[in-house]
Simulated assay, not measured.
Amino acid sequence: MMATSPKPKLSFLVQARRVDAHGSTADCKDARLVLDTDLAGRRDAFNPAELLLAALSACMIKGIERVVPILRFELRGVEVRVEGVRQDVPPKLESIRYEIVVDTDESDHRLALLHENVRKYGTVFNTVAPGTDLAGELRRKA
């Protein structure tokens, strides 16, 4: 029996640079984000904590997209709301609460299965969860 070589690990590269005292940019692939790195803050860009919450939200939606065809789960849409609470000393997000709202006619059991997959297989979710009080729910759209 021949040994198979291990699958290469997926890697990610983001490059960020300071534009001026009011902001920075981050580049990845063909995309660019404006970052709020201004000490006074700015309303037209995500600050670092908001970027983390956005990454967590995107991770949840991407996880749903990944598992929908496998589970043959029918949905019309997904919305995610994520809220983080920051502590000052040491500065960190002490808790993150999320709500995933799925527009679907699937059963409650199938919704629970979808939520289990989101929690179990999300790269960002599994990176954030061990160091943060991370909790939430997945529910059907009213």
Score class of each variant (00 low, 15 high):
2 M>E: 15
3 A>M: 11
7 K>Q: 15
7 K>W: 06
8 P>Q: 13
9 K>V: 09
9 K>E: 14
11 S>A: 08
11 S>K: 05
13 L>K: 10
13 L>F: 07
16 A>I: 02
17 R>V: 02
21 A>K: 03
24 S>V: 00
24 S>I: 02
25 T>W: 04
28 C>H: 14
31 A>P: 00
31 A>D: 09
34 V>W: 06
34 V>T: 07
34 V>L: 11
36 D>E: 07
39 L>N: 04
41 G>W: 08
42 R>W: 12
42 R>A: 12
43 R>I: 15
43 R>Y: 15
45 A>T: 04
45 A>C: 08
48 P>K: 11
57 S>N: 12
59 C>M: 01
61 I>D: 04
62 K>C: 10
63 G>D: 09
63 G>S: 11
69 P>V: 03
70 I>A: 07
71 L>R: 08
72 R>Q: 12
73 F>G: 03
73 F>S: 03
75 L>S: 03
76 R>Y: 14
76 R>M: 10
79 E>N: 10
79 E>I: 02
80 V>D: 05
84 G>F: 02
86 R>I: 09
86 R>Q: 14
86 R>F: 13
88 D>G: 04
90 P>A: 08
91 P>Q: 05
95 S>M: 07
99 E>N: 08
102 V>C: 10
106 E>S: 13
106 E>I: 06
107 S>V: 08
108 D>N: 13
110 R>M: 12
112 A>E: 15
112 A>Y: 05
114 L>T: 02
115 H>C: 05
117 N>S: 08
120 K>N: 08
125 F>K: 01
125 F>I: 05
127 T>E: 05
128 V>N: 07
128 V>W: 04
130 P>C: 08
131 G>T: 04
135 A>R: 06
140 R>Q: 11
